[in-house]
Each structure stands twice: as C-alpha cells, then as structure tokens.
C-alpha cells in the first residue's frame, strides 16, 4: 500500500480526493454503488462523481429523482439486502425530507430488529457556509445528526482525511452521515474573505495516496500542539482556527475532531487537562449546537483543571443570512478575541 510521500501520491483537491475514494471502492467492491441527484452522467453539481459513471457503468453510479426520503429509504433497503450504497444529498440543507428515514429507520434498524437487519449506508452531503449560498445552501446541521443515537457523523477538513474517512465510512457497519465542507472543496479557507483564494496544491494534507487506505472514525488529529488553550474544531473551521490562533499569538493546541460521532473524547480530555482552557469553534448556530455537548463533556471531565470558562465561537442564532455572510460566519478575529478572553488573568 502506498505511503505518504511515495511516487503514488499526488496532490489533490478535496473533490478529487473524494472522487478517488469512490473510484477506489467502486473498483474493489462490487457491492458498492452510488446514486443521487445529478451525480451520474453529469458528475454532480460539485463534480465529486465526475467520470465515475463512464468508468464503472451506469448501474454503479446513477442519477436519482429529487426525492431525498426515497433516496435514503432505497439505500436502506439495498443495505439490508447486502449492498454498500453511498448516496449524495445535493446540499445538507435538503436532507430534511429524509429525516424520518434517518432517525426512525437507518439509526434504529439494527436495534429494533435484534440485530437481524442493519443499514450500513453512507450519506454524503456538502454542508457549511462561506459561499454566499443563502439560507438553503449554507447550513451546518451536524448537531441534528449527532443527537440521533445510532448514526455516525463524519466531517473531514482536508483531502487526505476526506479520502481515508470516506472509505472508512463506506466500510463501516453503521449508517454514516458524511458532511463535506463545501467551502474547502477546492482549497483551504481560513475565514478571511479579503485574502486571495488558495488551492490545495502544495498543502501537505493534499498529498493523497492512490488506492485504498482509511482514516479511522473516532480519532481526532492534533493540528497544532500548544500549552495554553485547547481549540476544538472540525471541517472548514480547522483552517479558521489555525488563522485565529496565529492572529492571537497565543500558544493554543488545535484539535481537528474529524468525526463528532464517534467522538475522540480521550484526545480532548488529555489536551484540556494539559492546557486548562477550552474554546470551541463551529459554523452552526450556537444554541444546542454541537459545541454545547463538547462544552458539557469538557466541564464534566476537566472541571478541576479549568482556569477559565469554556467559550463557544459559533454562528449566530439566526437563519443563515445572505448579505451578512461575513458578519455571520465565525472568522479568525472572533476566535482570536475569545482566546484573548480566556487567557485574561482571573
């Protein structure tokens, strides 16, 4: 198997890495098939499935009607038969018509049937803001899924992880919601819209091996080691956090959660016990967001190590606004301010 840095690696965008993951699985597992709106001949509105129908055939990669509930419902039936369906919901904002299928069916099937049936489906869906997509192309619904026991929720932050996590999700025996941060599909974005766009080329985590490899679900990655405060982030916000930490000049430790269910609680607790401070960063609205769970967990497990209140830097509790994209989007400046606050002497 190729390792990082060998000749078989190539620099990929997150879109190319996701495409490579699907291509790898279609190539090696005849039970894997993919379907969704516009993903067949056309290759998907974000081009993630480009070329896959031509290479693997229409039965392995095909277009679906605009019927999110039946897309996920049919996938559950296929999975019960023994297949490994991977479906795309065009935007995470449009997954809501399928909520009953996810909550009452995919997440419950193994439990309620005494283990007779289960639904190892993977639901890929682009999510998150920073693209001037307005209310229905920008939202971050991860907390809705994390709250549903029986579902796993995975969020990559770079091309290497995107491929390894997607393969791990497809091979997982449980239903996985795979949220793709669309703002960083083509390049890392640190939350500063006035800075020139960057591509993934040259980024160390854009070096993607050919062929099969996995990044296990439930293992966070420490993106920056530090001693004074722990920053918890995932998806696009990992890059925003790095910029915010740099701007603050504070020696923060940055943890990329990679999956929120399963959650790598050990890495979080170990870090916060070391630093004594914690700031949580996510795009989703703050109230009952996943940050609330993270905050509660850190408080429960690290209370006597904490030297400052836990801070959450999140989207405001409004619908996702169009004109106010950058007023809403939690950028590096807001994180830097939060870091400064938690470092203030008591």
């Amino acid at each position: 198997m190729p390792e990082k840095g060998t000749a078989a690696n190539s620099s990929m965008s997150m879109i190319q890495a996701l495409n490579s993951a699907l291509d790898t699985m279609l190539g090696q597992d005849p039970d894997t098939l993919i379907f969704g709106q516009d993903i067949g001949y056309f290759g998907g509105v974000f081009r993630v499935t480009e070329g896959l129908q031509a290479k693997h055939g229409a039965k392995r990669c095909f277009d679906a009607p605009i019927a999110e509930s039946a897309i996920i419902g049919a996938a559950i039936g296929m999975a019960a038969y023994g297949l490994r369906p991977v479906v795309e919901i065009q935007f995470a904002d449009y997954i809501l018509p399928a909520f009953d299928q996810l909550v009452s069916e995919a997440a419950r099937l193994r439990y309620r049937s005494g283990g007779q049936f289960w639904a190892p489906i993977t639901v890929r869906t682009p999510y998150g803001g920073g693209i001037f997509g307005g209310q229905t192309h920008s939202q971050s619904p991860e907390a809705l899924f994390a709250h549903v026991t029986g579902l796993k929720t995975v969020i990559p932050s770079n091309p290497y992880d995107a491929k390894g996590l997607l393969i791990a999700s497809i091979e997982d025996e449980d239903p996985v919601i795979f949220l793709e941060p669309k703002r960083i599909y083509n390049g890392p974005f640190d939350g500063r819209p006035d800075v020139a766009l960057k591509s993934w080329a040259g980024h160390p985590l854009a070096e993607v091996p050919a062929g099969h490899y996995t990044v296990p679900l439930g293992q966070a990655a420490i993106r920056r080691e530090g001693n004074d405060v722990t920053v918890l982030a995932y998806g696009t916000m990992v890059h925003v956090a790095a910029a915010g930490i740099e701007q603050s000049g504070i020696d923060a430790e940055l943890i990329d959660l990679r999956s929120i269910v399963p959650l790598d609680i050990e890495t979080i607790v170990e870090s916060v016990k070391k630093t004594g401070r914690c700031v949580i960063l996510h795009e989703a609205t703050r109230f009952s967001g996943f940050g609330a769970e993270l905050s509660a967990l850190v408080q429960e497990r690290c209370f006597y190590h904490l030297e400052a209140p836990i801070e959450r830097v999140c989207g405001w509790d409004t619908p996702y606004p169009h004109a106010f994209e950058w007023d809403y989007f939690p950028g590096p400046g807001r994180l830097a301010a939060a870091l400064a606050r938690v470092m203030e002497p008591a």
Binding site: G77, A79, Y81
Partner: peptide, 17 residues
C-alpha cells in the same frame, strides 16, 4: 416500526438490489 410509510421505500431499494 411504528412510523408509517418509510418501509415502502426499503422494499423498492431491496428489489433494486
């Protein structure tokens, strides 16, 4: 399960498989 209608889609998915 007690919720209604959802398994109709599973039947079709199973048949497609």
């Amino acid at each position: 399960s007690g919720n209604l209608g959802t398994r109709f889609a599973h039947a079709v998915g199973w048949a497609m498989a």
